[in-house]
Amino acid sequence: MELGARRVLRPGRLRWLRALAWAVLLFVVVVASAMTTTQVLISMLPPDAGASKLLAYLASVLVGLGAYTLAVRLGEARQPTEIALRPMLPQLLAGVLIGAAMFAAVMAILAMSGLYDIRAQGAAPAWVAVGKALQAGVVEELMLRAILLRLVWLAFGPWVAFAVSAALFGFGHLGNPNATVFAAICIALEAGIMLGAFYVLTGRIWMSIGVHAAWNFTQGYVFGAAVSGAELGPAIAHSTARAGTPEWLTGGAFGPEASLPGLVVCLVVGIAVLWMAHRAGRFSVPRGELLRG
């Protein structure tokens, strides 16, 4: 996990402040480039476009990754190893399998406990669900892990970085439909810690992207549950919390990621991956140096 040590991040006076200012600038560059690409391309498509919308989401992902790469090369004088291409496919695939299995486990617990009803609906186009899940996985992992976690780590160390990135990830969802403070806390503790742990363990964001995207896709398309309070698009099933069940157990209208089973499953995985990263020495290297993985 390379934190950066050149140009804007060179050692010296006010390095912490330069790192934070650089994080803000990178945030703006990645979000503006990716989201503008999506809005422009989708506005040119008819409402019923399916595969074409997937291409628009893929284009926004590529633009976001390209903007991040260019900015890091110019501002930090390095190749961004956190998005190195060689380990991309195996780490993405591993993340996809882990993310899908985790959410399936959450739904199994909810259904077997009588807290959720799952009803099959039959075949449904997956274009939009794949596009939205992939865009969320790539753009949000660039923002929260490759940018925020990395640069706050450089400024203040790993534990402050984990706390800040997890809190912003969780409470950044308060603007979503049906959001509650409990839902934000759940996302901060489960996804904020777990996805950051995968990044620290591997030194890349690909596994975090795979877990994030697969979790959203499995949640919204396979089970047809709400994804952070909203619908992902057409789904092959429809899942809802049973009436009269406590929201802290089911997630309510926000979705299963705000449920107690979701919190427990993700925390168990996140703590396990953090332990693996600690055992591998990922937290023992001085700030600014390269964590070899």
Rank of each mutant, 00 (worst) to 15 (best):
2 E>H: 12
2 E>S: 06
3 L>I: 04
7 R>A: 14
7 R>Y: 15
9 L>E: 04
12 G>A: 03
20 L>T: 12
25 L>K: 01
25 L>E: 13
29 V>C: 11
31 V>I: 14
32 A>D: 07
39 Q>R: 08
45 L>W: 04
46 P>K: 13
48 D>C: 03
49 A>L: 14
55 L>R: 11
59 A>R: 04
62 L>F: 12
64 G>N: 12
65 L>D: 02
72 V>H: 04
73 R>M: 10
76 E>M: 09
77 A>S: 12
82 E>I: 06
83 I>N: 01
83 I>E: 00
86 R>L: 11
92 L>A: 07
93 L>W: 05
95 G>Y: 11
95 G>P: 00
96 V>A: 15
97 L>M: 12
102 M>K: 07
108 A>F: 11
109 I>F: 13
110 L>G: 11
115 L>V: 01
119 R>I: 15
121 Q>V: 06
122 G>T: 08
123 A>C: 00
125 P>N: 04
126 A>Y: 13
133 A>I: 01
134 L>F: 13
143 M>N: 15
143 M>C: 13
151 L>V: 08
152 V>Y: 03
153 W>A: 14
153 W>V: 07
155 A>Q: 03
158 P>H: 10
161 A>E: 00
170 G>W: 03
175 G>N: 01
180 T>E: 07
182 F>W: 15
182 F>R: 14
184 A>T: 10
186 C>P: 06
195 L>D: 01
197 A>H: 03
197 A>Y: 00
201 L>V: 00
207 M>G: 02
209 I>L: 06
211 V>I: 14
225 A>P: 06
227 V>L: 06
228 S>D: 04
232 L>E: 01
234 P>H: 05
240 T>C: 12
247 E>Q: 14
247 E>S: 14
247 E>Y: 07
250 T>D: 03
255 G>S: 12
256 P>M: 02
261 P>W: 05
269 V>E: 02
271 I>Q: 09
274 L>C: 10
276 M>L: 15
278 H>M: 05
278 H>T: 12
282 R>N: 13
292 R>W: 02
